[in-house]
Design a protein around this nucleic acid. Structure first.
Lengths: 128, 128, 128, 128
DNA sequence: GTGGTCTAGACCACT
DNA sequence: GTGGTCTAGACCACT
């Protein structure tokens, strides 16, 4: 997991999105603890306040719950809700790309090819 | 053309992207003037300074040139460069969606179906 | 004579400076007419109002005088005053360069070498 | 450091040039913070937006990098790049002075003497 | 505290 | 009318 401090997406939002995906994918399961604010802050090289803010957003969304003296626990319905969250966010990205392409007069054929290219490429990671 | 002031994408960047697409699609052709700072600001209900900032970014990118007392003229190579810009931005959206989906353990099959759904839906416009 | 519309020096000021130099160098002598507003505007591809403004500044400085129905005539003391003007402007440029160099911790030796380089180079014109 | 609000050189550009020189001369070294937007604005009695604009230009030039919540840090290669910037700006001033002098029919001897005068004079500071 | 973005409104040079 | 610069002051994310 990596954060892009230069992105226009706020860092706390990047953290929220990432945890939603980890829950959707089953890395964190209902009843389990997510990392403590401090440990995640250290790992992401981010201020603890920022992680705190992300955790509060997740709590508001009902995917985690605070247990005093213990930590943040993944709630029971979280997996399904996180999957919905992830699906919606994927759909949003695709819609936004399609809208951009059409506005630039790209054909649907061209747009679909561009998607296929992105799906196939070996490594969508960070090529510095 | 519409701006979303609530988006995390800065307003001036939304304007840059939009004009790049309009130039890529041939709505504004080399040698033509793009709308004046003031008129576009009125149309988008945005502060003139914000439009100004977008226009200066477009000038740095070399797709328009300022002519004192006249306006901003689309440069000769602008169409091709704007198409590159548009293609890159579409590709970025798709990559980002694909990365999110995979992080959430969606199968490539599921991801492709989601894309197909976005491509087919009648109205990518205003989904509340 | 050429104008740089992108320079931070206003166009009308560039015209004033240029005419001062032409008078200093004897291209235009006392009693002679300088080009009409219209002809100079055409030659420089500039709006007549801008040339007009430059001429008014020259008139205020006393280097030319308007003669109704005739044009702008170079005044008697103009040559000497234009030479002063030119000398002062050269001195200003050098001072400014020297100040910049010293602020950047360049040695006087280095600064003098840079000057020598500029003095010797074959063509200080416009290498596009 | 002082700003001339009456100069035809924009204030934000004066700030850029000045910081480039301070970095070139080693006053600010790689890894160090330059003054905050607000503090420099106060010191120069200039609007924070104007300083902000200068800082973003410096960031585009790659001599500083923004760190959220911390400040603008001088980058590693900045010193060399700032020295290039300073040298180029000194050379530009000298070229411009030489061009003016020649256009006014000053001899190279006279031009060189003028330079020498500027280099020797005790106080290039505030000539009224 | 830090930088990033935005609104509101002014004055300037230029066409 | 056009773009370019600047002031004044606000709110945001982040440390």
């Amino acid at each position: 997991m990596s954060i892009d401090p230069a992105s226009s997406t706020p860092v706390f939002q990047q953290i929220v999105d990432h945890l939603q995906r980890l829950i959707a994918s089953g890395v964190f399961r209902p009843g389990e603890l997510i990392p403590s604010v401090r440990s995640l802050a250290l790992e992401l090289r981010v201020n603890p306040n920022t992680v705190q803010r992300a955790y509060q957003a997740l709590e508001r969304d009902g995917v985690v719950a605070a247990r005093k003296g213990v930590g943040m626990v993944v709630t029971d319905g979280a997996a399904a809700s996180a999957r919905d969250h992830a699906h919606a966010s994927v759909l949003d990205s695709f819609r936004s790309g399609i809208r951009s392409g059409r506005a630039a007069a790209m054909s649907d054929h061209h747009i679909r090819n561009t998607f296929q290219q992105a799906l196939i490429e070996p490594d969508s990671e960070s090529p510095p």
